[in-house]
Amino acid sequence: MLLKSSSLLLYKNKPQSGAEVTSDVQKQTQDANVSALTATILKLQQEKNKLQKEKDELVARLAATKAPDVIKPTTKPAPVPVTCPSDWHLFNNSCYFISTISRDWSGSQAFCQTQGGHLAIIHTAEEQTFVWNLLSRGHWNAYWFGITDEHTEDQWKWVDGTPLVGGFWEVGEPNNHIDEDCGYIVKTRVLERVAIRSWYDAPCSMFWRFICEKEMNATTAP
């Protein structure tokens, strides 16, 4: 029994070889490195969490103090001003031409159509006054415009087919004195004559000067 105990004690106290010592040192070093790396990772994670928290707080403050977005109105292209050809006169969105030649009513309408328009259609006192002011005074200066009752007597219609409402007839007109189915405007030297009482009817075969009109659509600048 004593022999066995001595042998066991001798074994346990047996000095380690150089390889075994080196292995233990390496293991301890590795353990220390792992511990240091773990501590570094933990520290970085904590710093990341802190930065994320600060970022979230800043975003929240910015959202609380930021003024509401101003909705900018949709920018539309500016319309190009309406212009009239040479010798035509602008009123609202229409151009008017006062002829210096004389034709019958249908010939006058045909000429206006070749210019891209028609005999003038006049709906308002302002339009009537504008056109009348373009006319020259004379003994009996007469100008065809775009009204007729040649299809049905006393049912005056414009050249676009719409019926006349109201009008600016002279007192006693229209009177269909001698089969007078077309309308014209008169401007004389009599200063008391006014624009809103200057329409007459006459036979469509008579030769007068005339008034053309063409509507102009405002174009849009690119």
Rank of each mutant, 00 (worst) to 15 (best):
E153L: 05
Q128A: 02
T75W: 11
P15D: 07
W140A: 12
Q113M: 07
G107R: 09
G166V: 02
W144G: 00
I71W: 04
L44H: 07
C84K: 02
L42G: 09
E47S: 10
G138S: 07
P222K: 11
A218S: 15
H139F: 13
V186G: 02
I196P: 02
N92M: 08
S17N: 04
A64E: 12
N176T: 01
N176G: 01
W105E: 01
E180H: 04
W132P: 01
Y11A: 10
G172S: 11
L191Q: 08
W144M: 02
I178S: 02
E54Y: 06
P174D: 02
L10Q: 15
L135D: 00
V82W: 06
K4L: 06
D87E: 11
K214N: 12
T22Y: 07
D31M: 09
V59A: 09
L3R: 06
Q45S: 07
A63C: 08
L37R: 13
H139R: 13
V70E: 11
G166Y: 03
W144R: 01
T152E: 07
L42K: 09
Q52E: 13
C84E: 03
S23F: 13
A195I: 00
V82C: 08
D160M: 08
P163L: 05
Y143K: 03
N176I: 00
K66I: 12
S106Q: 15
G166Q: 04
S102T: 15
T219Y: 11
V70M: 06
G107F: 06
Y96D: 00
T162Y: 10
A120P: 00
K72Q: 14
S94M: 02
D87H: 08
M206Q: 15
G116V: 03
D149G: 03
F97W: 06
D201Y: 02
A32Q: 10
P81W: 05
P79G: 09
A19H: 09
P68M: 05
D149T: 05
Q109F: 04
A39M: 07
K72G: 05
D104N: 15
R103K: 15
N13R: 09
F91L: 03
K14Q: 08
Q30P: 01
Q109E: 12
S23N: 13
N217E: 15
L10A: 15
F207N: 12
C212E: 00
E54N: 08
W158L: 05
S102K: 15
L42W: 04
Q128N: 10
L58Q: 04
F207E: 12
I185H: 01
I211G: 01
A202N: 14
D87V: 06
